[in-house]
Design a protein around this nucleic acid. Structure first.
Length: 888
RNA sequence: GGGCGCGUAGCUCAGUUGGUUAGAGCGUUCGCUUCACACGCGAAAGGUCCGGGGUUCGAGUCCCUGCGCGCCCACCA
């Protein structure tokens, strides 16, 4: 069994990723029950691009999936739409490899050209492969030629909702993006606080000498004003009701109306009404039957209706309008004003509220059952607090504009009749208008919001609307892991559409993970340019290290800050495991231990009888600790407490297995050969530790496990399908843990003293050790181990011996007196004891006060009181001893 | 304007239902090239748990309040 001196993840990670993929249980097939969806952060030469914001998600999903697979749970997991990108990448990378090409040398443009070309020639092969790989169906750059199954599902849902009156078409105010030339939903508009102005404009009231002053942040829209509103309770203007004002610049007469939208406390109390360019005004316009005058068009240019301003850009028009108003004496004042302006999520253009004909989903009836399933716990959010955000949105939900004027996407299955102007909505492409029979019909040019089809994902991928076996098996599914940034976009809509179309919720648990942020706590995003490129860091530190560092920070409900520091220390951890393995493998060879794996793969059970008196302490101890570790890791992953799992494993492997267990076992290597009790126990713990670690660090553990298992016929093919170690209560050994703690305390005390005395660690000092019951056995059995680990020559005594040249360290269980070289007994030692005494006196005073407090003794539970008493006694004896040694 | 969350060691954060002298990683200081590992080993220093009240025998943890910070939602001119 050989192992390279240097830990190089780059050498084996790509190999295992490919190996898993080839065997099909790595990225699983949703159409094959019994397999699970699973994706990891793949190492650099297997896949290409990953969005940083989702690295954490991939890691958490993969950990969970591996864990479940190793436990033998047959569960379907639901990957998000973003997995589509990775799955595509994987297919494409493989295709590239087949042709002997490398994406990195190919260049982006050439690369994308090829992807499209393959799509063309394969007639959808890539798409189908993506579906097979568990990818999203949202692959729709060409019009009309989407995956057939999905198109069917989309049409089916559209037609159903339309027939139930839940989809309607109407002229409404939508957010129009002049950059993308499409309507966008409310959710796709991002608001940003900016410094603007509030312009106060005077409108002369016809037939009087009064003027009404209105305020606006968008003066150019005044060209389209069709009324001025005042509040019925506002005495200042009431007498003007029914009169008209002369609209400056346009010289139109517009009425003064009464409407609650005018807030008497804001500005002048009167408000201009522009029904074509403001959602509020639009509603007011409907209430009062006002004409709508569109003054800005889809390109954000002023329309012909604006006379001299026609053709100007809206911002240029603003300047000109203000100037004209000023020149003509209508501008009363200008004040600075904070306002939030809406921008298009995609292109950052300031959106323009425009009136146009769009398709909408009536959301209230869909939201009600979606609220109920969360209220009564049928869908559970983790962390729980997200349900409140979900409710907040659901209760205030507004109709969803689903039509988009883009050139890609699912086309809306509606046909307009040129003859009778009616609409035909149909599952199949119709040849004639269903109202008048005319064949002069044209399909609606709009496509659907991409989230409309994404919302069908839980069942459209399983063959719906056909009643397939997959659908029966996997709907509803168990878990959705996703980020809160798409809680409304995707999660909420899957719930609504799932309940509506399937009559049942799509999943039971929604685990919301944090966002990945950079060292300055900024959300990582491509536009900010602060992305840590996963390709670079996985290449540099190894995929396992990146996963580990992500998981260590992944406390539920909190965002994680990802820095290279963290990855570096995670790589150190991987390297530590590598080197511990090296130690084991080298000694296996030296001791001529043949290939050996533990036979019991379910529980953390030792193969040898640890109850016998000759059973080594380190074995009894490590199995006890291994079980606690297994217990804690299992529970942590089950509850999505990934950081806890990662930390537990880190501590167990490094600070228990490596620091103490292997150090103790080293002492046994020289005296042993062949497979014996020591080797069996060591290899069992090692192998189980690898399995425990596997979901977190799959590549490293697979690599080491395969080497360990080489030459053994009867075994699982891969560690990723070996069983996951479970807690075995019988192996917990409190006595061993106690004894080991004493041993550790003695060794630590000795090292501490030597460090204080500035004695070289290697220098062997004489020392005497006094152990009190029940710790006495540790001295008798572990004398040699203590001597070797601490660098002492030990004399066991039953009573302390006063010795001028020694330094003493005392605990409740033992006294350790080390003979110091004459010149070096010391100040450091004295200083340490003095400081310790100070602390002790403080806690002794605290404990005494507590015990003297009648209320405490009267009301606190007995075990707490006893614990305090015991502590007090320990502190006091410790203090006494410290004082003795200081006095001596 | 409404909602959510955060404030713990120099830095980044853990701390599950209140109960030992509040933990980890990084960084810092000291000592070591020991034959698995310097991506290492051994040791150390470092914290009025944001301030102020309250509940309790007992609060980093629960309640109120003040300050500071972040995020999400919202058509108020």
């Amino acid at each position: 069994m050989e192992i390279e001196k240097v830990y190089e993840p780059q050498r084996f990670e790509p190999r295992w990723a490919q190996w898993w993929i080839d065997r099909g249980f790595y990225i699983a097939n949703p159409r094959n029950p019994g397999r699970v969806f699973s994706l990891v952060i793949p190492p650099p030469n297997v896949t290409g691009i990953l969005h940083m914001g989702h690295m954490l998600e991939h890691t958490e999903i993969d950990v969970t999936v591996r864990w479940h697979r190793m436990r033998g749970d047959n569960t379907l997991w639901l990957p998000g739409t973003d997995h589509a990108g990775i799955a595509t990448q994987m297919v494409v990378e493989r295709k590239l490899a087949e042709e002997g090409l490398d994406r990195r040398t190919l260049g982006r443009e050439e690369f994308e050209k090829r992807v499209w070309a393959w799509k063309e020639e394969s007639g959808g092969t890539i798409k189908r492969q993506m579906i097979r790989l568990g990818a999203s169906c949202d692959w729709s750059r060409e019009r009309f030629t989407l995956d057939e199954g999905l198109s069917r599902a989309v049409r089916e849902v559209f037609v159903r909702l339309y027939e139930k009156g839940l989809i309607y078409r109407g002229e409404y105010m939508v957010n129009w993006c002049p950059g993308c030339h499409t309507a966008v939903s409310d959710l796709e508009v991002v608001h940003e606080e900016t410094n603007g102005h509030l312009w106060h404009i005077a409108y002369p009231v016809n037939g009087t000498d009064r003027r009404i002053v209105v305020a606006t942040t968008r003066p150019e829209t005044m060209l389209g004003d069709t009324a001025v509103a005042i509040n019925a309770k506002d005495a200042r203007y009431l007498e003007l009701h029914g009169k008209t004002v002369r609209l400056p610049l346009m010289d139109r007469d517009i009425p003064i109306i009464l409407d609650d939208m005018a807030d008497p406390l804001f500005g002048s109390g009167a408000v201009k009404v522009t029904p074509a360019h403001d959602p509020n005004d639009f509603e007011a316009g409907r209430r009062h039957n006002l004409p709508m005058i569109q003054v800005i068009d889809g390109n954000a240019k002023m329309t012909a209706a604006t006379g001299p301003f026609a053709g100007l850009d809206r911002f240029e028009a603003r300047k000109r309008v203000v100037k004209a108003l000023e020149e003509q004496g209508y501008l009363v004042k200008v004040e600075p004003y904070r306002l939030s302006i809406g921008q298009c999520q995609r292109c950052k253009t300031v959106v323009e509220p425009l009136v146009s004909k769009q398709w909408f989903v009536k959301t209230k009836p869909l939201a009600e059952p979606a609220i109920r399933v969360v209220e009564d716990g049928r869908i559970q959010f983790i962390p729980e607090s997200w349900s409140k955000t979900y409710f907040e949105w659901m209760y205030n939900i507004r109709d969803w504009c689903i039509s988009r004027q883009l050139w890609w996407g699912h086309r809306i299955p509606a046909w307009h009749c040129e003859t009778c102007n009616q609409v035909t909505v149909s599952r199949e492409n119709p040849t004639a208008c269903q109202h008048c029979g005319s064949s002069k019909i044209l399909q609606d040019p709009d496509v659907l919001d991409t989230w409309f089809s994404s919302g069908l994902w839980p069942f459209s991928t399983l063959g719906w609307p056909d009643q397939t076996q997959d659908l029966a098996t996997f709907y509803p599914t168990s878990l959705l892991i996703t980020g809160f940034d798409i809680l409304f976009f995707w999660v909420a809509r899957m719930v609504m559409l799932g309940i509506e179309c399937m009559g049942e919720l799509p999943f039971r648990q929604v685990y919301i993970h944090g966002l990945v942020r950079d060292a300055d706590k900024q959300k990582m995003s491509k536009t900010r340019g602060n992305v840590i490129d996963p390709l670079v860091v996985t290449e540099k530190y190894g995929t396992d290290a990146v996963r580990m560092s992500l998981l260590l920070g992944a406390a539920p409900g909190t965002d994680i800050v990802l820095t290279e520091d963290r990855m570096e220390s995670a790589r150190s951890f991987a390297n530590k495991i590598w080197n511990a393995s090296r130690l084991i493998f080298l000694n296996i060879e030296k001791s001529q231990v043949g290939p050996w794996l533990p036979t019991e793969l379910n529980c953390c059970t030792p193969e040898t009888d640890l109850n016998s008196l000759t059973a080594p302490l380190e074995d009894r101890w490590i199995f006890s600790r291994l079980n606690r570790c297994a217990d804690s890791v299992n529970r942590a992953i089950e509850q999505y407490r990934y950081h806890e799992a990662a930390q537990t494993l880190w501590h167990f492997v490094w600070h228990e297995f490596c620091d103490w267990y292997l150090e103790l076992k080293k002492l046994r290597f020289e005296e042993n050969s062949g497979i014996n009790l020591h080797w069996r126990n060591l290899l069992t713990v090692y192998e189980m530790a690898l399995r425990l670690l596997h979901p977190v660090m799959p590549f490293l553990t697979e690599e080491l496990w395969q080497r360990l298992a080489a030459g053994i016929a009867e075994r699982p093919e891969s560690i990723s399908i070996a069983s996951y170690p479970q807690y075995n209560l019988d192996v917990t050994d409190l006595k061993a843990e106690y004894e080991m703690t004493i041993l550790q305390e003695i060794v630590t005390a000795a090292r501490e003293m030597k460090a204080d005395l500035k004695v070289d660690k290697k220098q062997i000092l004489d020392a005497s050790l006094v152990l009190r019951e029940p710790a006495r056995i540790v001295g008798e059995v572990q004398k040699q181990a203590i001597e070797r680990l601490a660098g002492l020559k030990l004399t066991l005594r039953t009573e302390p011996v006063a010795d001028q040249s020694g330094v003493v360290r005392s605990g409740p269980e033992f006294d350790l007196i080390v003979q110091a070289p004459a010149a070096q007994s010391g100040d450091a030692q004295t200083g340490r004891l003095m400081k310790q005494n100070e602390d002790l006196e403080k806690v002794i005073a605290n404990s005494r006060r507590q015990l003297e407090d009648e209320k405490f003794v009267g009301r606190a539970p007995a075990h707490i009181i006893n614990a305090v008493r015991q502590k007090l006694a320990d502190y006091e004896s410790q203090l006494r001893k410290n004082k003795d040694s200081l006095g001596a």
